[in-house]
């Protein structure tokens, strides 16, 4: 067979088309084999969806966002303090390192558990907000350990000359940090911090361990209730979609930001 002389660009287009066709065939085969009637009844039960709406958003989703935002803001503030401590010299640095390694090294679930059950028993302290408050404190601690490392990396990425310029103008170490270093460090950490927010949003589902009352249930706990009430996984599917509505745009934003930052360098 005489092989026709095909240009590389054309050849690439042909092979790409073949790959797409192949993928489509596989998806079609799987779709044909699936029991659609059963899937619809089980996973996408419209009656169940109607029953959950709008509480799944107004209670579950709302609580998830509240817990995430509060933990993120407090955790970031605390994490920044730990980052500065770690970069200092002496006992503060040592303490910050121990804290960061401890809470990055154990599962978030254990930290939340500790804050909810061990802390009140061991020290007799009562945390504002009861079980939910304690659980959020656990999330704050976990987040602060991760953001401390992100902030430290961001601050260290600010060129040394910036600090030197500020100090030679007579600014104190505190002024230099507040007005010159941190504002630049924050810009550098926007993409990893957005990533951390996405992780936290998902980790907020671990709060269930504190034992939540119906009005304080977050999205996953809310959906699990639905699972046992209706004996249908539809609520879980709905919850997954709601998580994705928040996380996918954020992940896309990270990609854009990273590209933008890379260009500026």
């Amino acid at each position: 067979m005489a092989l026709v002389d095909i240009r590389p660009t054309v050849r690439r287009r042909i092979s790409q088309t073949l790959i797409w066709i192949g993928a489509l065939v596989v998806i079609l085969l799987i779709a044909l084999m699936a029991d659609w009637e059963n899937i619809r009844k089980q996973f996408l039960n419209v009656a169940v969806m109607k029953d959950l709406w709008p509480e799944i958003v107004l209670v579950g989703m709302r609580n998830t966002l509240i817990y995430t935002f509060i933990s993120f803001i407090v955790g970031t503030a605390l994490g920044t303090v730990f980052a500065l401590m770690k970069m200092s010299k002496g006992p503060f640095s040592w303490f910050a390192t121990a804290y960061i390694e401890l809470f990055r090294g154990i599962p978030a679930l254990l930290t939340i558990f500790a804050m909810t059950f061990i802390l009140p028993i061991a020290f007799g302290v009562k945390i504002v907000g009861g079980a939910v408050g304690s659980a959020c404190l656990g999330l704050v601690i976990v987040t602060s350990a991760y953001t401390a490392e992100i902030m430290r990396a961001g601050i260290e990425a600010v060129p040394k000359g910036q600090r030197e310029a500020a100090r030679s103008l007579g600014m104190s170490p505190v002024q230099t940090t507040l007005f010159i270093i941190l504002p630049q460090g924050f810009r550098i950490v926007i993409p990893p911090m957005t990533n951390e927010f996405v992780m936290l949003l998902k980790d907020s589902s671990l709060i269930f361990i504190a034992g939540l009352t119906p009005p304080t249930k977050e999205l996953t706990a809310f959906a699990r209730d639905g699972l046992s009430t209706y004996g249908s996984p539809t609520p879980l599917i709905l919850a997954a979609i709601l998580y994705l509505i928040v996380t996918i745009p954020l992940t896309m934003l990270i990609g854009k930001l990273e590209k933008k930052l890379a260009v500026r360098k």
């Binding site: 000359g161 100090r167 030679s168 007579g170 104190s172 504002p183 630049q184």
Partner: peptide, 29 residues
Amino acid sequence: DKIRTRIGMVFQQFNLFPHMTVLRNITIS
């Protein structure tokens, strides 16, 4: 810090504050 205000310093790499306008670079300190 007080004494450093009386000693101006100019660096090879300029070291302007990139997150501020030219005006703010000069007013902040």
